[in-house]
Structure formats: C-alpha cells, structure tokens
C-alpha cells in the first residue's frame, strides 16, 4: 500500500482546473443558451400574448363594427321599406286617380254617347213625327188647315202683351207659310193681321215646307211660331223634359 502526496496534489489541482475549464467551456455557455432560449420563449409568449390582446381588441372592434353595420342595415331596410311604402301609396293613389279619371271619362263618354243617342233618337222621332204629320197634312183639307192656322196666328197676336205687340207695329213682317199662298190667301192673311194689329202691316210672304203646315210671323226682333213643325218641336222638347224621349231611346 502506498499513498503519494504528489499525486494527491496533482489530482486535486487537476480536478480544480477541470472544474474551471468545464465551467468556462461547457456549463456556462450551455446554461446561457438555455437561459437565452427561455428568455426567447418568454419574449415570444409575451409577444403572442400582446398579439392575442391586439387580436381580441380587433375582434371586439370588428364585432362593434358588425353590430353597427347590422343596425345600419336595419335602418336602411326600414328606410327602404318606408320609401317603398310611400312609392306604393303614391303609385296606388296615382293608379286610383287614373282609374277614377278613366272611370269618369268612361262615364262621361257613356253619358255623351247616351246623350248623342238620345239626341239622335229625338231627331229621328222628330223626323218621324214630321213625316207622319206631313202625310197626315197631305190627307187633310189644305184650305181649312190654313184657315185654322190663320185663326191661331191671329189669336196668338191678340194674346201678345201690349208691349210685344207694339214691337210689331211699323216694321216689315215676314209671313212664312208651309205652302205657297196665292194672292187671295195673302189678302186674307193681310186683312186678318191688320185687323188684329189695328194698323196696316207691311207683310212679305215666304214659303218654308219645313213648317209642314201653318203660318208664322217673323220680324227682325220677334218670331211668332204657329206651325206644326213648331208644335212638334215644342212637344218634343216637353217630352224630352219629362224623360219620355230618353225612355223611348
């Protein structure tokens, strides 16, 4: 058994040197690298946390914006509905007004057509009446008929008021007859009118077959109707007023 103190000292120094060398070249750099990695990881985690916070803030902002957009969309939809309702109401009112106008126009056209038909019927009735009256007159005694109408003319002049009859005095008067009057008939008419007026009358005789039968007295300001045509026209007017002609139409 031997124990060398030199070797003991060598080994002690050797181990101390080895401790220093490994501390310098192994333990320290590796531990520093581990610390650096942990620091980098911590930094990355902090950055990730910050990014996450930023992302959450951005998400909150996006959600708020989305909510605002939804509210804006709802408002836009409500406004669009309101506008559409207003446009619809306007279009409906316009269509209703147009329909009313068309209805009124149709009604007016119908009324006008009815009036036209009524007038045409009235004219047809008048024509028919004139035709009938003309044919009836052709079968009557013309002289007796003239005499009767002359009497009714004189009676009509006599029934005039004093002021109306004074208008007939001193003016040229036309005696319009349905048939031509010979001189005898003209004398008889002149005498009868002069008698009823009380003064000589300046008469001019004309013929108008449209009168059918009768004598009428025309002055510049006055017409005294006295014919079947006038009677038929008056009757037609009366019937029209009473609605008989429209019913007939």
């Amino acid at each position: 058994m031997s124990f060398d103190p030199w070797t003991l000292g060598f080994q002690g120094v050797n181990v101390l040197v080895l401790v220093w060398l490994l501390h310098r070249f192994f333990w320290k750099p590796v531990a520093a690298m581990i610390d650096a990695r942990q620091s980098a990881a911590a930094t990355l985690l902090d950055k990730a946390k910050a990014r996450r916070s930023e992302a959450e803030a951005a998400l909150t902002e996006v959600e708020a914006t989305r909510a605002g957009l939804a509210a804006e969309r709802d408002a836009s939809l409500a406004a669009a509905r309101k506008d559409a309702a207003a446009v619809r109401d306007t279009l409906l009112a316009a269509a209703r007004a147009e329909a009313d106008a068309l209805n009124d126009s149709a009604k007016s056209a119908r009324v006008r057509a009815a009036e036209t038909l009524k007038a045409a019927a009235r004219e047809d009735a008048k024509g028919l009446a004139l035709t009938i009256a003309g044919r009836l007159v052709a079968r009557l005694d013309v002289d007796a008929l003239d005499a009767a109408f002359l009497g009714w003319l004189v009676q009509g002049i006599a029934d005039l008021s004093h002021s109306d009859r004074s208008v007939l005095l001193g003016v040229d008067l036309d005696v319009v007859s349905a048939t031509a009057q010979d001189s005898t008939a003209q004398d008889r008419i002149t005498r009868a009118i002069t008698a009823v007026l009380g003064t000589p009358a300046k008469l001019t005789f004309r013929t108008d077959p449209a009168l059918i039968a009768g004598h009428e007295l025309h002055s510049p300001h006055f017409i005294l109707r006295n014919s079947w045509a006038a009677d038929l026209a008056r009757i037609a007017g009366t019937l029209a007023d009473e609605g008989v002609m429209s019913d007939a139409a």
Binding site: T7, L8, Q11, G12, N14, L16
Partner: peptide
C-alpha cells in the same frame, strides 16, 4: 487512493 482522496479533499 490518491484521486478519490483528492476528490474528497476538494
């Protein structure tokens, strides 16, 4: 013996 003794002394 020297090496373990040196280690123990350290």
């Amino acid at each position: 013996m020297e090496t373990p003794a040196a280690l123990a002394a350290l």
